[in-house]
Design a protein around this nucleic acid. Structure first.
Lengths: 132, 132
DNA sequence: GCGACAATGACAATGATTGTCAAAAACGCA
DNA sequence: TGCGTTTTTGACAATCATTGTCATTGTCGC
């Protein structure tokens, strides 16, 4: 389940998506990224964008967020595990690291005998700029 | 935005959904709940189930979880704020309270000047029963 | 009891995501 | 380097939960 025969091939489309993610900031939906690629002149199918993003997410190279609004948002993010603080009004995103939370989550899970633990955490609020 | 003229009326359908949620255990999707209501002989439209669940969620009477699989899951849960530890294999759910996390989230948000803060946290793992 | 007004519900619409499958491209190997 | 195998691509259809619509119905204040 880790690196059996599945040889991942290096294609122009995959590179294009990776390159784009390396340049843009903030979260973007798959459709959003697809549109940007087309603006750049890169011809990549929407289906391929979805699949590439899924692959990158599986590989841990990008982060997926599911805001309570609808679409999945993808973002290339810094190494290691961290979480996001998102402004409800303007969408501004701050990356926050939370060793406290990591420890707590692992501890709680262990207390209940859970193994192979992962977790997701998003914090939503109104940022200073958007506060009246 | 809190309790202006919007008078919430007490209807048979709303009671039915509430009553059902009070009896069933674990998380259920809207469609799931709708099917259960029909089995019970309660005639409630799917649209109404969705709207009622939304209302209850807004009022904080039920909890919404968005598992990485698709549908929203609703559950009547204990008072106060808490989170969930979910088994990837069997779906068993454990309610966990995390004062540590609440504090941490609020603190981090405050540090960045965010107000009106809320957060979502789910922990996924494999429960003891499902561990080989 | 009556009237205003929110709630209901059948149905259509939306819209993101996934499935399909033939054609094209990439990589391993000789 | 050339060839064959195998993955990948991409246009389109399909899926499916959720939301919008709007005429009708039921509630609640008075």
């Amino acid at each position: 389940m880790s690196d059996s025969g599945t040889a991942v091939r290096n294609t122009r489309q995959r590179s294009a998506v990776s390159a784009l993610l390396a340049e843009v900031e903030g979260f973007h939906s798959a459709q959003d990224l697809h549109a940007m690629l087309r603006d750049r002149g890169e011809r990549v199918g929407l289906t391929t964008v979805y699949r590439t993003l899924q692959g990158l997410a599986d590989a841990g190279e990008i982060d997926v967020m599911r805001p309570p609004g609808g679409e999945h948002l993808y973002r290339r993010c810094s190494e290691g595990h961290h979480h996001h603080l998102v402004c409800r009004a303007c969408g501004r995103t701050v990356e926050v690291a939370g060793p406290t939370v990591e420890t707590w989550a692992d501890k709680v899970a262990a207390q209940h005998g859970f193994t192979n633990v992962s977790h997701t955490l998003e914090i939503f609020g109104t940022c200073p700029t958007c506060t009246p």
